[in-house]
Every structure is written in C-alpha cells, then in structure tokens.
Design a protein around this nucleic acid. Structure first.
Length: 804
RNA sequence: GCCGAAGUGGUGGAACUGGUAGACACGCCGGACUCAAAAUCCGGUGGAGGUUAUACUUCGUGAGGGUUCGAGUCCCUCCUUCGGUACCA
C-alpha cells in the first residue's frame, strides 16, 4: 500500500462533503435533541485565520461531529465581526476601502475554514457589515430606544488635539500619548448614546446560577456588576464660611467601621463641590482638579502614590458626632457610589495610604482577641475581629456589629438602605466610519427621534472621507445628510456616530438560526428551538464585556416577548492563547506567527487539527512546537500503516478490551473538552495495534469512528477503503460494553508508613488479606514489617498502606 | 490598584471525588537500515547515590508553613507570569 500522504485524498473528500451537504443544518422543533455549537465569530483580519481561531473552531467542531454521530440535530454556524477599528485604520493608512479589505479577508477565511474541515453550514453565515444584518442591529437599537433604554448624555473620550480625533484606549500609549503623533492625549466631553444595562444588573447577577460556565468567569461577571448591599450614611457639612444645611452621602457595606473614619474624600467631579470648598482653599482645589483632569479612571485607581487636597470644610459623623476634614482626591471616582467615601485608614489600605500622606490620624474599630495583638504600623489592619471604640457595640463580632450599627443608623434616620453597583451604562457611540450607523434623526429643534422601522436599514454610505479631521466621518458625507432632509424635511439631520462593535456581536448567535430572514430579525420559533447554545467557545479576553452585553440583549428580547429563554449561552468554555515557538505572543513584530495554511500544506488538515487539540488543555496558553506537530503526523502515518494488518476473520480478546476501553474514554473526554487526553489515549491504542500481528476489522472500524471527529480525512478514506457507506461523519458513534473493559488483574502499590516500597499483582477485586499476604511474599516489602502492623489502610485495586 | 487564572522532567503536558507523580508526545542518548544523510524501526531517558547487572536508597510538582496513614490535589502566607479593567476584538 502507498505511504500515507494526505494530499492524495483531502481535496476529494472536501468536495464530496460539500456536494452531498453532509453538514446541512436539520430542521427542528422545540424539545428536539439538539446541539448548537457556537464559536465566537471572528474578526476577519487581513492577516487571515490564525492558529488560535483554528483551535477554537476545532474545539467546537469535534463536539459538533461527535453529537451528530450520536444522532443529535446539530448546528455549526459561522459569522464575521466585520465592523471595527483595524479595518478603518488600515484604510486610513493605505487608502483601501474598509469594505474591500473586509470582503477580501472574509473570502480567505471561508476557504481556510473549509480546508480545516470545520463542519460549518454556510447557510447560517452572518456578518456585521452585511446590510441584511446591520438592518436588524439598527432595529434592536430602535426597540431599546422605544423602551426607554437608549439615551444620550455627556461622557469623556480620549482626544488627540493634534490629530483632531477620538482615540481608542488601545491607541493611547502607556505614558498617555497618542500612538500616531506622540501628543499628550486629553479627556474631552462629548454627548453620546448609552444603553441602560444597569436596569438589568440584578438579573445579570442572579441568572448566572442558570448557566454552566467556569466558576472563575461567573466570579468575574459578578465582580464587574459589583452589587453590594449596604446603606448611604448622611454626613452634615460644616463649612466654616456658610451656614447652609448640606448633607454628604457616603456609601458603605462596612458599618462596623463607622466609628472609625478620620476624614472624608470626595471625587474631583463631585457635583456640589462648590458648597464644600472654602474661599481660602479654592485655588488649591482647582489647581488639583486641573492637574488630574486628563487621567483615566484606570490611571487614577492604579496610581502608587495617593494625591489630594483639603477643601477647608468638615463633616459630622452621624454615629458619634465627631468632625472630620473633607478632602478632594482622584482615587475616589464620581461614577461609583455617591462620589464621596469615608476614609477609614485603620481597616482600608487605600485610606491608610492617604492618611499617611496627609498625616491624618488612624483609628481602629475592631481587633482580634489574640493575646498581645498589635496593629501593624505600616499598613491597614484588614483582618477580622471584635468591635472596639464603638460605644455600646464594643465586644461584638464585627459581622454582628455591622448589622446592628446599620439598623440603628437607619432607624435614627442617619442612613438610608441602598444597593450599589459598579456596572455602568453601556456607551455605544463611536465617532468612526466603519460601523453600524445609529438609526436616529434629529428634528430642526435638535430632538432625537428613532428612524421609522420601514426606513431601515440606514445605509452606511460608501464614499466617505474617513481621515481624522475632528468630527465623525459621516458628518462629512453630503449624501448621508441630504437623504435626511429629503426624507424627513428641511432642517432634519442624521446621527453621525456609529455603534460600538459590541452591539453587532451581542446578537449574532440569534441570527445564525434564521440568517436569511428579510421580514423580521428572526423567527422566534426557530430561535426557541435552537437556543440557548450548547457549547460556546470564546477566548479568555471576552469573559466580561461581550458576555455581559449579549446577556443583556437576551434579557431584553425575553422581556419583549421575542424569545422564551433569558440566558443565551448554556455551556461556555474558554480557549487559551497559542503562543509562538519562542513562547511569546504571536506577532509580526517578533516574526513568530504560525500560519495555518503553511501547516496544512506541510502536514495536512488532520495533523493540524489533531496537533492543536493535543498541545495541552484548551483553556491554557501554550507555545507552538513544530516538532511535536510532526509527531502527530507520525501517529496518523502509523494508523495508516496499521490498516494493512486489518483482517475480517481475526478475533482477539485483547483488541476487544482495548477498543472498548478507548470508546469508553473518548466520548466523555469530548463532552468535557479534554481533547489532549483523548488524543493521547488514541495514540496509546494505536501503539497497541502496532504491536499486534493482525487486526480485527470491526475493531479497526470502531477505531476510525472514534478518531473521525478529530481526523476527518484519513478516517473517511480508510472507512471507504474498508467498503463502508459514505460518510463516516454521518455514521453511528460506537457503543462500548462495560464488561469487556475490565482487566482481570491489577497492580497494587504497597506502602509502609505512607512510602511506596513495592507493588503486587493480584486478581481485580481482591480483599485486604489477600493483598497483604501477597505483599508479605515480596522481600523488599516484608523486610519493613517486623512486628504485627498497627493499622492497615486498603483502597481496593489501588493501594495498601501498612502502618508499623 | 481591583477581579480572574496558571506555576509539575531539557520541552508541551498526564494524574478520576486526596491513593504507585511524570501517561502521551517532543527532544536527547544508544542501536538497526544506508556509501552517506533524511525518513523509518528497536531500546533507554526526572535528579543524586548505588550495583558487573538486577535490586535498592534518597530527593523531587514556584517558596515557606499546616491538615492527613497518605498532598501536585485541601487550608494559610508569600513570589512570579498571564488575561480583563468599560473606545482592540
């Protein structure tokens, strides 16, 4: 037989699978046994599909194929996150229109995906920049607008004064300068559109209990929403220059520390700052605000050294009537809580740092009852303890004190119960060209109206000057603005901002199910039958934002009665980064980029697929190793060679046992996405076959079936050569017989005092005495047992630990 | 700063709910084949000690401590690296 060469048959099968529509999505109704395998739709970069995409897609494809063989109805869609910044920047640099380079990139992606053999049904294809897609993105905006969930307000953006353009965070260097021209970036307020995701905060927290996601992901979602249940404490302002009654509210959950604040801090943007700052301190405060106004929130919170300035006023602690000074400092943010916090340096590290810097006293409200306990001199005490300095609450455990103090202050009307969230509304306006136009028109008075639904889509004009000149590119399109006056009358104008691409990506998984529908966003019955998705693979970098926004849209659709479920992704898992051979992140800069096309050319698609699955756990970051990839090619060649030994008539108990063990292992391994170990087991099995003189045909057929989801081409080829019906990918997944998987004897480790001193082979299921007697027959074990053992611990078929 | 994750041979990694650490693969070493090389095949391979050899001893899962008959796995403290941090997607 010929040597294994994937080129001999790859094209043949690829064509046949397409011609015979092997992966066509079946029709289903709600309740059918289905499997919706979703890969987070890729950004179609001009660099082509990269090996990280291959990893994720194959990780989706293997379970899709496995479930197809198990008889489930399977959908494996594909789409493009085709609006976005890189295409626009590339266009600014080269003059090639974003639509052109995007469409080009998509063509290349489709071809590559087919070459890798991902079982995509292309009838499901969607793309953010397709007119029949972004029409419905706009439709969603209008529904949110009509529901009162889209609104405008001012918000800061990164602004480059030289380039006269808004910069993405990514375009700002770490020293706060513009990546293009090196000018210091400023913060500038613009009027922008927001979605009111905060209305959904509680459901976004609570419904995490409904889904099968990694706990760490849920933890990050919860933290992002940041729900904390506490109360606002009312502090009376004492401004030595004014008698005006004014109250400053601070939010806290830690009422146990209420006796301890030694200062109050308000954010530089605090709304009533002028009531707090005295004439004497006015200059210093405005100077300070000037000095920090171009810092981002992240900069402000991660600054090593605390900064701030005294306002001249004091606040009265409602718990004990103590007066504390009020400061302005940028480590307090205006958009979280009330924009004012109480400084409790004894028990909060940031407050401690601030107190040290400004020489403010440190007071403690709790301490452990340990003998000789001393508070640390150089940091806050963030441990647990019993109340001190807290009047009638002294001696209570802090958790109890927290509740009691809060109740008392609320009863005395000195605090108001309050739930706080870190989650902020979703800013979706972008002052860019390559995105979905926001479907809003302004009347001559400047009031915003939703574009009537029958006028959708608001088309993104093609001929637009998108070079940076200080306003949104669409503002410069006469064609775009003229169409508004023509349609809606003189003085009417169009919104010129486009949408954040996260809007596009927050609903594409619905559209896959009904990608060609021109009448409505989707057919609800179809969506209710296919969703939620059964497996969603996303990169670890999407854990917070993309998932949060998609869940928000899903809940909104549910509320609108469009769908009958309110979480989009039932089971979700992450894949890790694939690093370059040098262990660094792949990048043109390092010249360490691996192109999947080259790998297919060298070794074939099966090898590429299997190698990426074999590299290591899906969720880990792992470096590329060409030699190891070659090892997978070697494995497939050996499979090919073993085929020559297949004989119909041969019977072998050992082969029967090994194939049953393999089938038993691989199925659950696919379910748990443990592909690397599944591949290892198949290699072990094949090594076993290599030692056999002849191989039973049925055993080899079952091996091909188990291998089929991983290595599509070789299995289809050998399946056909054995005279089986096309296609192996629609064949039935093999069953295993538990009884046949059992080994008759087992090796048991014998420990003396917990140290392994030898092993014994006994019949499976032997009892403790039998194992002990066998162990006493081994010299190196027996020599440690001089007297009757104190104790024996026996775990059947595994270990015997003798304590002497 | 805050949230999350990961650290196991020369390398990628395996180890089920605590039960023989290093499966599988790469690399390396030795051998076969070859004029030679590549490819392929066979054998070996955590470190240290020890033996003619086989035994065997001992150390070992980022560091330090703890729980347990037994810890890569559980608990505490620390270190390093990576992801996210709201306009990259």
């Amino acid at each position: 037989m010929k040597k294994f060469n994937p080129k001999d048959f790859e094209d043949k099968w690829r064509k046949k699978w397409a011609d015979d529509e092997v992966y066509k999505t079946p029709k289903i109704k709600k309740g059918d046994d289905k499997f919706y395998s979703l890969y987070s739709y890729p950004y179609p970069s001009g660099a082509g599909l990269h090996v990280g995409h291959v990893e994720g897609m194959v990780a989706n494809d293997i379970p899709a194929r496995y479930n197809r063989m198990k008889g489930k109805k399977v959908m494996m869609p594909m789409g493009w996150d085709s609006f976005g910044l890189p295409a626009e920047n590339y266009a600014i640099k080269t003059g090639v229109h974003p639509k052109e380079n995007t469409d080009e990139a998509i063509k290349a992606f489709v071809e590559q995906i087919n070459n890798i053999g991902i079982s995509v049904d292309w009838d499901t294809e969607v793309g953010a920049h397709y007119e029949n897609y972004y029409k419905w993105t706009q439709w969603i905006f209008i529904q949110l607008f009509n529901a009162g969930l889209a609104y405008k307000k001012k918000a800061p953006v990164n602004w480059c004064p030289k380039d006269q353009t808004v910069l993405a965070n990514e375009q700002v260097e770490s020293d706060g300068t513009c990546e293009r021209c090196g000018t210091k970036v400023e913060q500038k307020d613009l009027s922008q559109w927001f979605f009111k995701i905060t209305d959904f905060a509680d459901r976004l927290v609570d419904d995490l209990d409904k889904v099968d996601w990694p706990d760490s992901t849920k933890a990050q979602q919860r933290d992002w929403i940041g729900r904390s249940i506490g109360a606002e404490i009312l502090w009376k302002l004492n401004n030595p220059e004014s008698k005006e009654d004014f109250t400053i509210n601070t939010f806290t959950t830690r009422f146990d520390t209420i006796p301890g604040p030694t200062f109050l801090v308000v954010a530089p943007e605090y709304k009533c700052l002028d009531k707090i700052v005295t004439a004497e301190n006015k200059d210093a405060v405005s100077k300070y605000i000037d000095s920090i106004k171009n810092k981002t929130d992240l900069d402000r919170q991660s600054a090593k050294e605390k900064t701030g300035v005294f306002t001249g006023s004091y606040a009265v602690n409602p718990f004990n009537n103590e007066e504390v000074p009020i400061y302005v400092a940028d480590y307090v943010l205006a958009n979280y809580g009330t924009g004012a916090v109480m400084g409790m340096p004894g028990h909060d590290q940031r407050d401690f740092d601030f107190a040290k810097k400004f020489d403010l006293p440190v007071k403690y409200t709790l301490q452990p009852k340990d003998e000789g306990f001393e508070f640390p001199k150089d940091k806050a005490f963030e441990g647990e303890g019993y109340q001190i300095n807290s009047d009638e609450f002294d001696g209570l455990w802090w958790e109890e004190a927290k509740e009691k103090i809060m109740e008392k202050l609320i009863a005395d009307k000195k605090a108001i119960k309050k739930v706080n969230y870190k989650l902020r509304d979703w800013l979706l306006s972008r002052q860019r060209y390559w995105g979905c136009p926001i479907p809003v028109i302004y009347d001559p008075e400047g009031n915003a109206h939703a574009v009537p639904e029958e006028d959708l889509p608001v088309l993104l004009p093609y001929n637009v000057d998108f070079s940076p000149t200080g306003e949104s590119p669409l503002a410069k399109s006469e064609e775009f603005q003229k169409s508004a006056e023509e349609k809606y009358g003189k003085g009417w104008s169009r919104e010129v901002d486009t949408m954040d691409t996260f809007v596009d990506s927050s609903w594409y998984f619905f559209r896959h199910v009904d990608a060609k529908n021109d009448e409505k966003i989707f057919d609800s019955e179809k969506v209710n039958a296919w969703l939620p998705t059964d497996l969603y693979m996303i990169g670890a970098e999407h854990i917070v934002l993309h998932l949060m926004y998609s869940r928000f849209f899903t809940k909104f659709f549910f509320d609108q009665g469009l769908i009958d479920f309110d979480e989009p992704f039932y089971k979700m898992r992450h894949m890790g980064l694939i690093l370059g051979p040098d262990g660094r992140k792949m990048s043109k800069r390092w010249g360490n980029v691996i192109n999947p096309n080259d790998e297919i050319e060298k070794y074939g698609a099966d090898t590429l697929r299997m190698y990426e699955m074999f590299m290591g756990p899906l969720e880990d970051a792992k470096p590329w190793n060409d030699k190891a990839e070659k090892g997978v090619l070697r494995f497939l060649s050996k499979v090919w060679d073993n085929f020559e030994k297949v004989k119909e008539s041969v019977r072998s108990e050992d082969q029967e046992r090994e194939i049953n063990k393999l089938i038993k292992y691989v199925g659950p391994a696919i379910d748990s996405l443990s592909f690397n170990t599944a591949v290892a087991k198949m290699m072990e099995f094949n090594n076993f076959l290599s030692k056999e003189k002849e191989i039973n045909k049925s055993v080899f057929e079952r091996f091909m079936l188990v291998l089929a989801p991983f290595a599509l081409y070789i299995t289809e080829e050998l399946w056909a050569q054995m005279g089986n019906e096309f296609s192996i990918h629609n064949a039935k997944w093999p069953e295993f017989d538990e009884a046949l998987t059992k080994e008759s004897s087992v090796t048991i480790a014998i420990q003396i005092n917990g140290k392994v001193r030898g092993t014994v082979d006994v019949d499976a299921g032997s009892n403790e005495d039998a194992v002990y007697n066998a162990a006493m027959g081994v010299e190196n074990i027996a020599k440690y047992i001089e007297t009757e053992p104190k104790k024996k611990i026996y775990i059947q078929d595994r270990i015997l630990n003798v304590i002497v």
